[in-house]
Design a protein around this nucleic acid. Structure first.
Lengths: 121, 121
DNA sequence: CAGAATCCCGGAAGATACTG
DNA sequence: CAGTATCTTCCGGGATTCTG
């Protein structure tokens, strides 16, 4: 089916928004981690090498705001907070798997192209 | 199948690399444009609302470096340069269509979640 | 434990001017 | 027409410190 120009660009903007959400530095790692099971804050922090607590917080807040992750507070001492993927968040995993498959499949070609380009000039 | 931790994180890094390439501000628009047919520089610049010639140049250079786009110079006066997707670049389109489908399908849910979250506090 | 608040820096991206 | 060069601005993200 053929789309009108306006629809094409608005779809591009939509895709751009999605990429802005999952395309940042840490979201992929967080989602991949929560794909297995719910997790606590510091547990995730320890699991993701190099992430600061600030960025973990911001990443989780963003995902929570978009309804991709739920945040559950247990009023205990010390406090405990669980993060979990929502149903919507689960659907993200399939997309990321698609990206992973593409990446693994074409990585050698891309690396070769880069090397050739860089060797040029 | 279950992966070892090391493989999981390296796959995450690969996905991160892919997202760094296609997840920037303009790549999606450029690729979508070239999906239809080869195009000239200024033709693309006019078609993508808001892009600067600098960013169009940088975006195209990046895509060319990774072997996703070819650059063909015609030694005429005035000069003419055509940009075209490679076979590898074509495979990107399918992925972007997948992202587009996901985005269109879940956009209402995400917007609702955002509104609810923002209304909260 | 799970964060909030603050400071700071480098790189991404816009605006503008110039060129083969 | 298709860029390059330069300047500047803006923001993502790191390090550190403080708190319920």
């Amino acid at each position: 089916m053929t789309l009108r120009h306006k629809d094409e660009t608005s779809t591009c903007r939509l895709v751009g928004d999605v990429l802005a959400r999952i395309g940042d530095k840490w979201t992929v790692f967080v989602v991949r981690l929560l794909a297995d099971r719910p997790m606590r804050f510091n547990e995730m922090k320890r699991s993701i090498d190099g992430i600061s607590q600030r960025m973990l917080t911001l990443t989780l807040r963003g995902l929570e705001r978009d309804g991709l992750v739920t945040r559950t507070v247990f009023p205990t001492v010390p406090p405990r907070v669980d993060y979990e993927l929502t149903d919507l968040g689960q659907t993200l995993i399939h997309m990321l798997q698609g990206l992973g498959t593409w990446a693994i499949e074409h990585q050698p070609t891309i690396f070769a192209a880069r090397a050739a380009y860089d060797a040029r000039e």
